[in-house]
Computed example of a mutant assay.
Amino acid sequence: MSATESLPITAGRRLYVQLGITLVVLAAAGGMLVAHRATLDSGTDRLAAADGEWLVLACLAAMATWVCAAVAQQGAVTERLPRRRLVAVQFAAGAANHLLPAGAGATAVNLRFLKRCGLSTRRSATALAAKAAVGGIVRCALGVALLVASPGTVGLSARVPHRVILLLPVAAGTVVLAVAVSGRLRRVLGRALTDVRKVHRCRARACALWGGSVAFALLHAGVVVAVVHAVGLGLPTSRVVVAYLVASGAAALLPTPGGLGSLDAALALALTATGAPGPAAVSAVLGYRLLTGWLPMVPGLLVLALLARRSAL
């Protein structure tokens, strides 16, 4: 069997593994919901009586995240992309992201869009990887900055097991070792770095990439903050932002569609660690999910179908 013929088999196996992990995580999340049904019911009732003005503010912040995602995506390429279509693609990608594991939905939508705009498959993949890498760096930097600027948030990090903290440098070292050993990875990384350097030579593109990523992370955290205030939780804003950053980083380790189950559990646990009662933390998570995932789902899929019909994807 040739290398070309083995590629579909490898991709198929990888998809089956991701789907298997997704089903396990979703089953575990469903079991947790059944076990804590009373807490879920209480959280739902509390969300139903939430402050409407704060919820409107959270909704506006959620809508602004699509614009920030579009700005960051434009910053990852040197070519000029159609603005309105780019924002629409980010909206549609958010809906597709809740259907496939590990962000595969959003990646596939953006990849097809960039290829339709004239970029090669390699350069499109590099742009998406650069955007994802910058997003991860931004979240880590924001978390560290908040921990340094607000010592009171250390109470949250102190409850994180030391094993989890030790795993971070181990994982980073493993990635570096894999790149150093594999010649193919070095070549791929070298080509990717060349494209990234081209983007950063243009100040406007670099500012769009990094500024859009910072705004995207802060606006998602802002949705959580607004929902927390809507349900009447008196938690400091800095602790809520750190809780979101920690939860989103932990949820990225589990390849579930849109972080379903993994992000919910991690965010509820993080908010509880900041001092929120269980039902209140559940209501905040439900509100965040409602505004960023469930309500935009059907409109996003309709936009996705419209873009595909107009050959934009």
Rank of each mutant, 00 (worst) to 15 (best):
V282I: 11
G20N: 06
S124L: 02
L128D: 10
G94K: 00
A49Q: 14
T274L: 14
S150V: 10
L209E: 03
V303Y: 06
A35D: 05
T78S: 08
P255I: 10
L245A: 04
A251L: 03
G135E: 02
I165V: 10
L235G: 10
A141T: 13
G222E: 00
T237V: 08
L99N: 00
D41W: 12
V25M: 13
A64Q: 13
L86I: 01
A58Q: 03
I9T: 08
I137W: 07
T174D: 06
W210K: 09
S2I: 10
L166N: 11
L269I: 09
A48M: 06
D264N: 13
M297I: 11
A108K: 03
G212P: 12
T39L: 10
L302D: 06
G94H: 00
A312N: 03
G258Q: 01
L263D: 02
G152F: 05
L260I: 04
G94R: 01
V148G: 01
R310E: 14
A72R: 04
G261E: 04
A27S: 13
Y288K: 00
A50K: 04
R186H: 15
V224F: 07
A133Q: 05
R201H: 15
A35V: 10
V223L: 07
R203C: 08
M63S: 08
C207S: 14
A62K: 00
A3D: 07
T174L: 12
A49C: 11
A252T: 09
A226Q: 07
R197N: 11
R239V: 12
A158N: 04
K198H: 12
S124H: 01
A281E: 05
S283F: 09
L267E: 00
P151S: 07
D41P: 06
Y288Q: 07
A27F: 10
A149Y: 06
L253F: 12
E53A: 14
A265P: 05
H36S: 09
C59N: 01
V71E: 14
A38H: 11
I165S: 10
R163H: 00
A204R: 15
V231D: 00
L233M: 05
S311Q: 15
T153V: 12
A96N: 07
A305R: 13
